[in-house]
Design a protein around this nucleic acid. Sequence first.
DNA 1: ACCTGAACACCGTTCAAGT
DNA 2: ACCTGAACACCGTTCAAGT
Lengths: 190, 190
Amino acid sequence: MPTADPAPRRRMRADARRNHDRLLAEAAAVFAEQGVEASLEAVARRAGVANGTLYSHFPTRQALLEALLANGMWVLADTARDLAGHLSAHEALTTWARAAMAHTTRYRGLATSLLRSVEDETSELHAACQEVLGAGERLLTRAQAAGTVRADATAADLYSLINAAAWAGEQTSPAQGERLLSFCIDGLRP
Amino acid sequence: MPTADPAPRRRMRADARRNHDRLLAEAAAVFAEQGVEASLEAVARRAGVANGTLYSHFPTRQALLEALLANGMWVLADTARDLAGHLSAHEALTTWARAAMAHTTRYRGLATSLLRSVEDETSELHAACQEVLGAGERLLTRAQAAGTVRADATAADLYSLINAAAWAGEQTSPAQGERLLSFCIDGLRP
DNA sequence: ACCTGAACACCGTTCAAGT
DNA sequence: ACCTGAACACCGTTCAAGT
């Protein structure tokens, strides 16, 4: 029961809808090439619209990211529920953590936005980040009940370590990022 | 036996020396306030010199950071040697890791520069980062010999986790950063 | 030997004017 | 209802001209 509707899908003029979609598509391409700090001016240019049009559709960079990522983040939360049904508490946790990290490495610089936004209520990404945090928390609690994770670990710890490993992977190599994630998760054991 | 002299301390015109020192002092202040991505134009302005003067003394942002940090990083490497003399292998490692993380949190954004620079030979910070990496490696090897750290952990792992924890602390809270460091170090146990 | 400041090519963000 | 594009205030970096 999300309180915000995903997008006012219908009540939009045809040209507005076209611009909206075009902007999202080009933003995805530009962010994939240059990371989430890429020039928004370049996004507008590639979408063939004036810079003001971009800002009227997506008032902030975070709003653009939210539109690109919210869906994937809901899927991630659903994945947590699925894994909880199919795997042991600890395997579900580690498998999901890897999936969450993979999502975070989608664009360079994303880990920074996602970690900041989980605590920043003014961020358009905040709700989606909280969703992911909550999904992780359920898997964490389950693993704690099973005795495979220390009792003092928190959802914020799990969320932080996933993002930190993703970030380290960005700066060095994906393999190094995954090694870090493994170490951190091992460090959660009692 | 460092091969690069710290700075051509003497052969400098008086005005050049003054500008050099003033630029460093203002850079330290501006970075402390705004992080290492702060405007270099602002640094030059506050130092009372033209922007070109800043670039002639410090051709890149990394060069400026190197001048500000290299000394502290050598100290960090020395600290590793001291700790090895006074503490158990594992205590020396954990104590030093905390000191290294504290150094990394000196300016916001620094973790990113320090992790990138350790592998990037073109960075002016590269030598100093390698120094720190090497210091960590000695403590790590000693702990591995003592059997308190798993054999497959590398110096790059240690260096990455210190910087990743510092980064996470920047994005959330120092306390969260320290929790992450603890978990990661625990994860290094056999 | 060093400094200056203009020059160039870029940004993010806002907002009056258009259709 | 939406789009345009100019306007403003800021960058990083280079380099001819000065002293």
